[in-house]
């Protein structure tokens, strides 16, 4: 059967074991890439001729911002699988994504604000990316708040999943309306994130860190999914068998 792998993945004990086996394969490369990338970015890369040393915060800011969006997409897709095929582990994955994604979003906001101080002289500017990031944080908070409002996991899963899908449809709309909004009010002196071409010596550490952050997310997700499965299946027989044997 072609779909066997799909059904095997849907079984909590199988995914629990698989996640345990896969975690080191993501965690170690993630650690090496992040350490290497940070060294390359913070020490080896030349300072920016305009922004000086301050630009180096992009090595944390850009990967965090990228992850905040990628985690939301992952969460929305997992939620859709859970809602459509009534797959319990998909809901467990979606639920595990939210706190990770929210943390990346906070990291992107904080680093963006830290970057803003030397660049613009204020801690906060209504730049379209920072604004979108802030809205994304509210989407994450709404998802977690909705889940927390239900007593039973099944309904929390399904209601949260629907919200994640609605959010997924909305994220591009929100993003482009914010860009449109900003283009009306933009002061010409404001520096834009990203857009200018970056020389290779600055770009390479960024790419390494993007990959490192992605693997880091994968490892974190696997750990959280295991905890989530344990909690959901706490009464199932396979749990006591696995844990004692």
């Amino acid at each position: 059967m072609r779909w066997t792998w799909f059904h095997r993945l849907a079984s909590p004990p199988y995914l629990y074991g698989l996640a345990a086996r896969l975690t080191p394969w993501f965690a170690w490369p993630a650690a090496l890439l992040i350490l290497g990338g940070l060294f390359a970015g913070l020490v080896l890369a030349p300072p920016d001729y305009q922004q000086g040393e301050g630009f180096r915060i992009i090595y944390v800011h850009v990967p965090s911002a990228w992850m905040s969006l990628m985690v939301y997409v992952t969460m929305g897709l997992a939620a859709a699988v859970g809602l459509i095929w009534r797959m319990k582990v998909a809901h467990a994955i979606a639920a595990s994504c939210a706190p990770i994604g929210a943390s990346f979003t906070v990291a992107a906001l904080v680093t963006g604000s830290l970057w803003g101080k030397p660049m613009w002289g204020t801690w906060w500017v209504w730049d379209p990316r920072l604004t979108s990031e802030l809205i994304l944080l509210f989407l994450y908070l709404g998802f977690m708040g909705l889940r927390a409002g239900f007593d039973d996991t099944q309904r929390a899963d399904r209601a949260g999943a629907l919200l994640a899908i609605v959010g997924l449809v909305n994220v591009p709309i929100i993003h482009y309306s914010v860009i449109w909004w900003n283009s009306l009010h933009q002061a010409p002196s404001v520096l834009r994130f990203g857009k200018p071409t970056i020389p290779g010596a600055m770009l390479a550490p960024l790419l390494i860190l993007l990959l490192g952050f992605t693997l880091f997310f994968a490892a974190l997700l696997l750990v959280r999914v295991r905890a989530e499965i344990l909690q959901r299946e706490r009464t199932a027989r396979w749990i006591s068998e696995t844990l004692s044997g």
Partner: peptide
């Protein structure tokens, strides 16, 4: 009805 099984929470 065929072997209906349903859980609410635990």
């Amino acid at each position: 009805a065929e072997n209906l099984q349903l859980w609410r929470g635990d």
